[in-house]
């Protein structure tokens, strides 16, 4: 078991290393950051001067090592517009994004699980078909369109909610629905198929044969077994939410890192872009680690299999 945890930790570190290397090479090799940042008609002499100033004329290996050195000190570079450290700019946007994504995550779980279970238990009925139709619609609906539909419906037509703003709890409603619907649809579908698979397993029939009630079977046997594989999907959800928050925050003018990223990409603030990418990647990698460790806690088969090293 410890061997498994150590392997997973090493893998996590290795993936982080890959992320940093990837970002470095994308930034350094696919284009010249100086000419990318400066207006097109800048004097070449000034560009050269800037390159020298930022150390871009040195060998790539040296730059790469220096890049690591700076990162480890928490130095992600400065925004060139106002010269503030990129990490600072990003950090002040993190709480808003966290608020949005965590609420959306809760929404996904609260909406997705019961729908999936309900559909599976009533499989083949009108309830099942209705839930699955909602689910297909849910993940076919691009979230930018959903956001606009919500604004049109709830703000423009019904005037129930303000279209923008982030100060009150009710400001969260539309962004969370926009961000969470696709995820909830995916979870509902996954939970349903996972439940159906488990409900067809021989041990469910064996439970029936020994007189357990259907309700007891669903809640005490089928659900725990069906929940195990959903952990993986929940891990993926973290990525879906971060990706989706970019659009959602733009639609609702939400002051989070998603909108910051778009602004930075448009303004070519590379330091900010790389900071956001790394923070995202790090949270993804740690989410995966959490998924792996969670499996160990709740699935005895993995716990023992990894203990003996197979």
């Amino acid at each position: 078991m410890t061997g498994f945890v150590i392997r997973k930790l090493l893998r996590t570190l290795f993936t982080l290393f890959l992320v940093v290397t990837f970002v470095f090479f994308v930034l350094r090799l696919t284009g010249d950051p100086v000419s990318a940042m400066m207006p097109d008609d800048t004097d070449p002499a000034i560009l050269d001067e800037l390159r020298k100033q930022w150390g871009l004329d040195r060998p790539l290996g040296v730059q790469y090592l220096e890049y690591w050195f700076n990162l480890l000190q928490g130095d992600f570079g400065n925004a060139y517009r106002d010269g503030r450290p990129a990490i600072e700019i990003v950090a002040e946007r993190v709480p808003a994004t966290l608020k949005l994504t965590l609420t959306a995550f809760a929404f996904i779980v609260i909406a997705g699980f019961p729908l999936g279970i309900f559909a599976a238990v009533n499989r083949g009925t009108a309830i099942d078909r209705a839930i699955m139709t909602i689910s297909v619609t849910g993940f076919s609906l691009p979230n930018f369109f959903l956001g606009i539909l919500l604004i049109f419906l709830l703000s423009v037509t019904l005037r129930l909610l303000p279209a923008y703003g982030s100060d009150h709890w009710y400001n969260l409603i539309m962004p969370v629905i926009t961000l969470g619907t696709a995820g909830a649809a995916v979870i509902a579908r996954f939970v349903r198929s996972s439940m159906l698979e488990v409900l067809n397993a021989p041990y469910i029939r064996a439970c029936r044969a020994r007189g357990m009630t259907e309700r007891a079977i669903i809640w005490t046997v089928a659900l725990p077994n069906a929940a195990i594989p959903t952990i993986t999907i929940m891990g993926f959800m973290v990525g879906t939410l971060i990706g989706g928050s970019i659009v959602t925050e733009t639609v609702f003018a939400w002051p989070g890192i998603g909108r910051l990223l778009i602004d930075a990409v448009t303004a070519r603030e590379l330091a900010v872009v790389q900071t956001v990418v790394m923070i995202t990647a790090a949270s993804m990698v740690f989410a995966n680690l959490a998924v792996d460790l969670l499996y160990l806690v709740i699935d005895p088969r993995r716990r023992y299999a990894s203990g003996t090293g197979e």
Partner: peptide
């Protein structure tokens, strides 16, 4: 549910798959 297990019980071919794995 009151009959099963009390009046008649059943065992299956694949015993390993017929027990709750977790």
């Amino acid at each position: 549910a009151s009959v099963r297990g009390r009046e008649a019980a059943m065992i299956f071919q694949d015993a390993s798959a017929s027990l709750n794995p977790i």
